[in-house]
């Protein structure tokens, strides 16, 4: 079975600055992968390259073993946030339905099967009660759920999420993470989710792609999340602790680390 996503020797330069330098990693079908790194390290650039929104100098990106250009339908995308005027006459259910075939020209009546699929997905993301709400009325957490349904309704094999947890409160973070974990299994979709903080993802994350200084390190979560590996990545001492069966990553406050570009933002919940 080919990799759900494979990135090889990717180099991206923006305004004369090398953002990504020879980045390579791959993701297996159905795997939950965290793309971790601090703000401004190139996570969004990497996601945009995979989405085909960001031209790159060298490297290849393939999805399901084929060049990504042929695989629009195989990739689902959840942007961080959409700013909407309050009056846009569009309901949640209309937006999710658009996910089916928004790129097609012309008008078309929806089949009963398509309507059922939309309803089932809204149900699956816990958004059935939102169906007839205006899209612009949703809260941050509701918007994320609806975007996920929009992306999944076309049954992609790879789902990319850009900092979906950034503006959520801790409870919503947990719920969305659990939801994604469940959907990854039920729909057999590989998930690549960017975040600047990995603790919330540790219980469900199969693989870590750690981005720092334009380079990346990747591996199964239990191999990367080790005291010595992380300490080497961060450039100073990091503890990996087990508390009540859960794993936490803790960076020690240290004056010397303030000057490091990769000052970790990890804390205990």
């Amino acid at each position: 079975m080919p990799d759900a996503l494979s990135v090889e020797h990717l180099t991206v330069t923006l305004h004369g600055r090398t953002i990504l330098d020879d980045v390579s990693f791959s993701i297996q079908p159905g795997e939950f992968t965290g793309l971790i790194g601090s703000n401004g390290v190139g996570k969004t650039t990497l996601l945009r390259a995979i989405l085909g929104l960001q031209p790159y100098e060298t490297g290849t990106i393939s999805v399901n073993g084929e060049p990504r250009d042929l695989q629009h339908a195989a990739i689902g995308y959840v942007p961080q946030k959409i700013a909407l005027d309050s009056d846009v006459p569009l309901r949640v259910i209309d937006f999710v339905t658009l996910g089916l075939d928004a790129e097609r020209w012309g008008l078309r009546r929806r089949s009963a099967a398509q309507r059922d699929r939309v309803a089932a997905l809204l149900e699956a993301v816990g958004g059935a009660h939102l169906a007839t709400k205006r899209l612009s009325e949703l809260s941050g957490g509701e918007q994320q759920r609806v975007f996920i349904a929009h992306a999944l309704v076309r049954e992609p094999s790879l789902l990319l999420l850009d900092e979906p947890l950034a503006s959520l409160d801790p409870r919503n973070v947990q719920e969305i993470v659990a939801l994604l974990h469940r959907l990854a299994h039920e729909h057999h979709v590989a998930i690549l989710l960017s975040a600047h903080e990995m603790n919330a993802l540790l219980p469900v994350m199969d693989r870590v792609v750690y981005l720092t200084g334009g380079h990346c390190a990747s591996g199964p979560t239990n191999e990367v999340v080790q005291t010595d590996v992380l300490s080497a990545l961060y450039g100073h001492h990091v503890d990996v602790l087990q508390v009540h069966g859960r794993v936490f990553v803790i960076a020690e406050p240290n004056d010397a680390t303030d000057n490091l570009p990769e000052h970790p933002t990890l804390t205990v919940h």
Binding site: L51, L53, Y77, I82, V88, A102, E103
Partner: peptide, 13 residues
Amino acid sequence: VLSSLSRELARAR
């Protein structure tokens, strides 16, 4: 409609 809601989302498709 989709590209009005989000250019990025539309271009990604």
